[in-house]
Computed example of a mutant assay.
Amino acid sequence: METMFDTAIIGGGPAGLSAALVLGRARKNVLVLDEGRPRNRVTGEIHGFLTRDGTRPAEFRRIAREQIAAYPSVRFMDDAAVEVTGTNGRFRIATAGGATIESKKLLFATGKKDLPLDIEGLSDIYGKSAFVCPYCDGWELRDKPLVFIAKGAGAMHFAKTITGWTSSRTLCTNGPDELTEEQREELKRHDVAVFDSPIRRIESVDGLVRQVVLEDGSAVPCAGIFFAPKLAAGSDLPRALGCDVTETGSVVVDGFGKTSVPGVYSAGDAATELYQAIMAASMGMLAAAGINGELLEEAWNGKG
């Protein structure tokens, strides 16, 4: 592929697709590299996204690609980036399929990836009756008995947040709770039962949780679970290129998605810990505006 693209977008989820749409409408020559393994593929529906509430993730991506196809300057390649070299104005991307792509700017929309779920039975219900975000999936579990799996400050956050959807909630800390006495008393005042025995397994039928079984023999019946996932960066390429990255794997960006490396941007779950599709799409739009502004400025000054 000999074309020098204005922007190469690595990642074809809501952030990458949103950026592609904005840049396509800005008449920029764009390539979207998409390996087709979005983190939200385990979920049945996207929620909280105006006009797309309840849409299946695969359908969301299909509609987005169909709309972006109206802009001929945007191309898609179903492939994965494995190496990125170069500097602002001339980046070179090598793909798993053996292609080499050159681009003036880069946008990493590579998201995060789930680390293996270390509780027996949790993977069977993940995306069906076990979720990580009450804002995304709390409505479907409203007024039902819920278990949330967390420790310490995270447990307190979950306890308060889940109250908006149900008053029947139980904390399973899967080991030492890491709570202060004051926090334990606070949970007790709000009728939140706390079990600190390690979880032996989660029992379910056809993806619907029935109960959480603990090592001490206790069983906690429930109709849904929320838990804090263990995540890693969706790609190591931003770090390898020199981008500043937080301890949790998020690429450090400014308000328009610009990283610490000139010409390199990031958006969506790759650059935030607010994991919602509408947030990712919004960040993709802002990054696209930042990239377009930079390209226009360079062209204006005869550097494009």
Rank of each mutant, 00 (worst) to 15 (best):
I199Q: 00
S266N: 02
G217T: 12
A94E: 15
F131P: 02
F91S: 13
T55V: 07
D143Q: 10
I9R: 03
G268E: 03
F256E: 08
G257P: 06
E298A: 09
E297M: 03
S123M: 02
V22W: 02
K303T: 08
A159N: 10
A299G: 02
R41I: 12
N301T: 06
I119N: 01
L286D: 04
A153W: 05
S103A: 15
D78L: 11
L214I: 07
E186G: 01
D53W: 00
G86V: 13
A270K: 05
P221R: 13
V251Y: 00
H157C: 04
R65Q: 15
H157D: 10
Q276V: 09
G290H: 08
Q183E: 12
A288T: 11
A270D: 09
V22E: 03
E83D: 13
V212W: 00
K105Q: 14
A96W: 12
F148K: 00
D143G: 07
R41P: 05
E185N: 04
R65Y: 11
R39D: 12
K258V: 06
E59M: 06
W300F: 04
N301I: 01
C172L: 14
P176K: 14
E59D: 09
G121P: 00
N40M: 07
S123T: 08
P116M: 00
M4C: 09
G111C: 07
V252H: 02
A228K: 06
F60E: 04
D34Y: 11
S266D: 05
G86A: 13
P198C: 07
A130S: 15
M1G: 10
T248P: 00
R56W: 00
R27Y: 10
A281M: 12
A155R: 01
E247P: 00
T166G: 05
G44K: 11
